[in-house]
Amino acid sequence: MNEVLQYTIQGLAAGSFYALSALGLAIIFGVLGVVNFAHGACYMLGAVVAAVLLDTVGLGFWPALLVVPLIMFAFGVLIERTLVRWLLALDPLYNFLLTFGLTLLLVDLVKRRYGVSGLPYERPDVLRGQIELGALRLPTYQVFVFVFSLLVCVLVWMLMTRTRIGMIVRASTERSDLAQALGINVGRWVTPVFGFGIALAGLAGVLAAPFRAITADMGSNFIIILFAVVVIGGLGSILGAVVAGFLVGLVEAFGQAYAPTFAQILIFVLMAVVVLVRPAGLFGREETAR
């Protein structure tokens, strides 16, 4: 019983990284129609920037949760303005290839500058140790990661559902040309939305920093799982990205516990089943799956 709860919180903690990143990926795909292959690299950069800021200017974990996403937002804006923007009018494949190339570039730059063995990172003292509830012991940090990520997802969800910005983003996500015809300047939202999506990946990276090896390659496997998450949740579906993120985390944890050899395959089996049964994903609408 205790183990099952442990696996659950481990799955939810791992799922948090997927949910936050997939949320960013989904928003970017929705508004720009760009499948951002560099999302894994941005997750990696989030962790690397957190580690470097800790090492160089002593920026701790708590401020990093705010500062690093801001830096990543700026980075996203830069990438959108200088590169992605020019290919938006063309076949989406061009931006997929661009972001793929960007991934290789970022990974190699980090390798060149910081080596391959990774960077050290310490989590703050309050997040160490275990939360004890009777016989149950749950690692404080994992509980924190899950609660914090869930909170961010809820905030993003509220931003998307309760504000005019969210309304515009949802409308642009669903049918961009129609939104234009209704007087919405979709282009004006493209840059901040791209930056916001990148910032979410960066935030996932900061959260992963105390818990995962911070290496140039940490995003390489991650992006593959992330694509599975987005497909399961439904391309461009915001709720789908979050639910599928946590779901995939749980599948991974329980897979590792009860069928370790198949742990990773299970995720892709789940993806295949979802695609067969609901081609648009769990929360996707048919028209967004065109």
């Binding site: 696996y7 481990q10 791992a14 944890a253 590792q256 516990a257 370790p260």
Partner: peptide, 10 residues
């Protein structure tokens, strides 16, 4: 692999 939490619990 980047997630060993479950293996460790086990």
């Amino acid at each position: 692999n980047d997630n060993f939490a479950t293996f460790l619990t086990k």
